[in-house]
Amino acid sequence: MTDTLAQARAALREVVPHLVTLVRNVPDPHAISVGTWTVGDVAAHLTHVFHLDTDAIAARPLPDATVTTAGMAEANATMLARDDERNPLLLADRIAALADTFDDIASRARAATVDWLQDTRLPPAAVACHLLEECLIHGYDIARAVGRPWPIRRHHALLAIEGAVLPLIAVLPPTALVDQDRARSFQARFDLRLRGGGRVLMAFARGSLTLQTGGARDVDAHLSADPAALMLVFIGRRGIGKPLVAGKLTAWGRRPWKLARMLTAISPP
């Protein structure tokens, strides 16, 4: 845990200065970024995530939120409605200051686990990796909206997936990250191999998602994935086609077509 926390803090110290520069140079905070959110909304949301994850590690009270697509949309909308700041210069300064505060508090984290949303408990390392994931994804959202590059380094994406996404799947209810309407009849097991990282079995069964261990001989498909490409595909920022053609994702097995169905079944918050 200590090693992963140190890696996540180091990654944030690398990513946040680029994020701050990106936000500071936003030409139009009213430009649409992702969904109905403007670039200013995304930047403000990022400051809320910094507050949330800092409060978690500091053992301060957290908002009451359900970690599902609908639950987090409601919580995020409430926070954005209470915070009308959309000035890129001020939000950039806020992100920089909050990042320093987070790093200071994380450097003194000693608890094995801390309270997080929906009565879950996570290692401080997972909280730091969650913050890293949010910076990577929303940095991508802002950069795409303003026509700027936003390269995501493999080891940063790997930390976000192995250090945050997989631990969250493990502790949340198995229905939390699955679209119940689209996945009600979906059953499949996938052997996910993260390039530069480890392997995990993902099992979908009628509206639930669990992680499993053991042999991968009876899976429907194997997926070898570049972590950055996988993260953007899973979160719905890219389709699966181009990463497959580019070799960023490689699939094989008895039923590789089920991977496309999996992407419709997943419902990230």
Rank of each mutant, 00 (worst) to 15 (best):
E74Q: 07
L168K: 13
G163L: 06
M202K: 05
A6R: 10
D226K: 05
M79S: 07
V165A: 03
V127Y: 02
P243G: 08
S185G: 03
A246S: 15
A164V: 01
A8D: 08
L89D: 02
H138V: 03
R94G: 00
A31M: 10
A246N: 14
A106K: 04
A43V: 04
I57Q: 12
D119H: 15
R217W: 08
W257K: 01
D191H: 14
T120H: 01
P268W: 01
T21R: 15
Q7G: 12
A58Q: 06
G247W: 13
P124R: 09
W150Y: 06
N76D: 10
M231V: 07
T101A: 11
P149C: 04
T66M: 12
A58D: 11
A125T: 01
R148D: 15
S267A: 14
P243C: 03
A221V: 06
P227R: 07
A260W: 06
T21F: 01
A31D: 07
L90A: 04
L80I: 10
F234Q: 07
V49Q: 05
D93T: 05
L168V: 06
I137F: 08
G197T: 08
P63H: 11
A81G: 05
A106I: 05
R254F: 01
T4N: 02
L249G: 06
A246E: 13
H51C: 06
L192N: 11
L209G: 00
K242H: 10
N87R: 07
P227A: 04
T54W: 05
D191Y: 05
Y140L: 10
L122T: 00
H222G: 08
P61W: 14
R261S: 15
T36H: 14
A203G: 01
F190Y: 11
T2Q: 06
R9C: 10
A125L: 07
A56N: 02
G71L: 09
L232D: 03
V20N: 01
P63A: 12
M1C: 09
P243L: 03
S185V: 11
D141K: 05
T250A: 14
V26C: 08
D93I: 00
M262W: 00
W257N: 00
L117R: 00
V178G: 07
T264N: 11
L230Q: 09
P124Q: 04
W252N: 03
A160C: 01
L201T: 04
R153E: 13
G214T: 12
L192K: 02
R195E: 10
S107F: 07
A183G: 15
L259E: 10
G253N: 01
I57D: 10
D218R: 09
P17D: 14
R148A: 15
D83R: 08
L122S: 04
K248N: 09
R9F: 02
I240C: 05
K248I: 04
V16D: 07
W252G: 08
P17Y: 13
A225T: 05
D191Q: 04
E134I: 03
I235Y: 09
H155S: 09
T69M: 05
